Simulated scan of single mutants.
Amino acid sequence: MYPNDGFRELGRPECLRRLARVSLGRIVHTHKALPAVLPVNFALDGEAVVVRTSAASELARAIEGAVVAFEADEVDPVAHSGWSVVVTGRAAVVTDPAEHERLRREGPRSWAPSPVEVFVRVEPELVTGRELVGGRTMYGLDLPA
């Protein structure tokens, strides 16, 4: 049985395994006291979410030192199923030269390369996720085909 109307909570290890399978997500931060959402490509570095962006980007300036949320998901609209994982933590630009060089080799590739790029790391304080298995609800109802 799936509680919460068909949704199943995912534990931290499962959330991280699922994040490692995808490369596109969204950074949620505050801009002029309002929520802002930006799509980003990313990679996991241990449990941390790492984003590569231009040093002059609004993203790097907006989230440096801030608590942000990062969300990634995978959805199957035909099967009415999917999952979503949210990582919440403090974002920081990687300043250590050796760490920057390692991430340049092993980290995410930029979709819009820039002459001067930085890596922003989101250290996870909270990792949550849930999965919806199509057609299964706590009410025993199946979705129409």
Results as ranks from 00 to 15, higher is better:
residue 41 N to G: 05
residue 96 D to I: 03
residue 80 H to D: 15
residue 56 A to C: 06
residue 60 A to F: 12
residue 57 S to V: 05
residue 32 K to R: 14
residue 86 V to D: 00
residue 96 D to V: 13
residue 70 F to H: 04
residue 84 S to Y: 10
residue 78 V to Q: 12
residue 75 V to P: 02
residue 32 K to D: 15
residue 84 S to E: 14
residue 87 V to L: 02
residue 52 R to F: 06
residue 54 S to L: 01
residue 49 V to F: 07
residue 70 F to A: 00
residue 69 A to L: 10
residue 57 S to M: 10
residue 83 W to P: 03
residue 58 E to D: 15
residue 92 A to K: 09
residue 41 N to A: 11
residue 80 H to V: 10
residue 89 G to T: 04
residue 82 G to Q: 08
residue 69 A to D: 02
residue 34 L to A: 09
residue 80 H to E: 13
residue 90 R to L: 02
residue 62 A to L: 14
residue 34 L to M: 15
residue 75 V to L: 10
residue 36 A to E: 12
residue 91 A to C: 04
residue 60 A to Q: 08
residue 48 A to S: 15
residue 49 V to N: 05
residue 84 S to N: 14
residue 89 G to W: 08
residue 41 N to H: 13
residue 32 K to M: 12
residue 35 P to A: 10
residue 80 H to G: 09
residue 44 L to S: 03
residue 85 V to G: 03
residue 45 D to C: 08
residue 95 T to D: 15
residue 32 K to F: 13
residue 50 V to A: 07
residue 51 V to A: 05
residue 36 A to K: 01
residue 82 G to I: 11
residue 49 V to E: 06
residue 38 L to V: 15
residue 55 A to V: 00
residue 68 V to H: 06
residue 32 K to W: 11
residue 83 W to G: 13
residue 40 V to L: 09
residue 32 K to C: 09
